[in-house]
Design a protein around this nucleic acid. Structure first.
Lengths: 159, 159
DNA sequence: TGCGATTAAATCGCACACAACTAATTCGTA
DNA sequence: TACGAATTAGTTGTGTGCGATTTAATCGCA
C-alpha cells in the first residue's frame, strides 16, 4: 500500500466511523498509538543530542525564532506554562537556553538560546531526514496526513 | 475543505517533506498536537464517567474481551506494564475491575470487570458518537486518516 | 490617580509513559 | 529432574501534560 489512490480505493472495505466501542474502530486510538510510536522512534536520535521529544520541539521553535516569551512558546506548541516552566528549567540547567524577565514587562520571561543551544541546531539537521525515512510515506501521503491532522486539530480544538 | 479530493488538490501548494527544522514542516508535531487536542476533547466527556483517556482505552478493551492478562492488554494498547500496573490499580480502587493471579500460571494476572465496570459500558455508548461529531471529518476523511495513521505506525514501529 | 480586573509565570497535585530493574514463576533442556 | 533462561508483573526514577491555584506585574477605567 503506497499511494493515496490505493488507500482511498480500500476505504469501502471497512465500515467508516463505526460509532462502536471497539478499540480498533476508534480513530482516537490510531492517533494516540501513532503519536507514541513516532515519539519512540525519535527517542534514540534525540538522546544523542541530550533532548527529550518535547524539549526538541521547544528547540525547533527557538532555532526559528530566538528570544520568545513563554506565552508565545506555549501558543506555538499548544502547551501550558505548567508544562513549559519545568521543561525550560531543565533546558536551562543543561545550558541550552537562558530565561530573563523582560525589562519592559516584568511579568513576561524571554527565552534566549545560549551559544551551545544555537550550536546544537547543526547536530539536529539530520533528525527530520532520518525520521522522514523511517515514516516511509510517499510525499503525497506525507502531505495528506499532515493536512488531515491539521483539519482534525482545528475541528476538535473548538467546533 | 471537506473532501479528500480537495485535500489532495491543494497538496501541491506546499513543499512536501521539507526535511527542514521548521516546526510547521514537522509531521510529528501535527501528530503530537492532534493527539493532545483529541484527548482534550474527550476529557469532559470521560470525566462524567470518572475515567481518564488511557483508562477509557483500557475499558474499551475490557468491554470487548473480559478477563485479559496485563500482558495482552499491553499488547493491545502498546503500553508497558510499568504504565498499566498503576493505572489498573486505580481502576481497581474505583471499583471497575478486579485483578487476580491466574491459578494455572501464577506469573500472569487476569483483569476482570466488576458489575459496575460492565454497567459503565452503557453510559459510554454516546462517547464515540460525540467525538466523531466533534472531529467533523467526512466518512471518507475519517477512514483515510485512520489508514494513514496505521501505515505510519507500522512503518515507524520497526522499519 | 487609584484600584479592581487582567495577564504572565510558576507551583502543586495527579496521572500517564517509559527505561531500567526486581521478584516470582515457569519453561526448556541437558 | 535440576538448573539456568525466559516470561510476567510490579517498582522506581525521570519527564511530561494539565487543571487549579498562587504571585507578581500591568492594564483600564471611573
Amino acid at each position: 500500500m503506497s499511494t493515496v489512490g490505493e488507500l482511498v480505493g480500500t476505504a469501502g472495505a471497512e465500515p467508516a466511523q463505526g460509532h462502536t466501542l471497539l478499540l480498533d474502530d476508534q480513530l482516537c486510538f490510531a492517533l494516540y498509538a501513532a503519536s507514541r510510536a513516532v515519539t519512540a522512534r525519535y527517542r534514540p536520535l534525540l538522546e544523542e543530542l541530550g533532548l527529550t521529544y518535547p524539549q526538541y520541539l521547544v528547540m525547533l521553535v527557538l532555532w526559528e525564532q530566538d528570544s520568545i516569551s513563554v506565552r508565545d512558546l506555549g501558543a506555538a506548541l499548544q502547551l501550558e506554562s505548567s508544562t513549559l516552566s519545568p521543561l525550560l528549567k531543565r533546558l536551562e540547567a543543561g545550558g541550552l537556553l537562558r530565561r530573563e524577565r523582560r525589562p519592559d514587562d516584568e511579568r513576561s520571561v524571554a527565552i534566549r538560546l545560549t551559544e551551545a543551544g544555537a550550536r546544537l541546531k547543526e547536530r539536529a539537521r539530520t533528525v527530520p531526514v532520518d525520521i522522514g525515512a523511517a515514516m516511509g510515506l510517499t510525499p503525497e501521503q506525507h502531505t495528506l496526513t499532515q493536512q488531515l491532522l491539521r483539519l482534525l486539530t482545528a475541528n476538535v480544538s473548538q467546533g
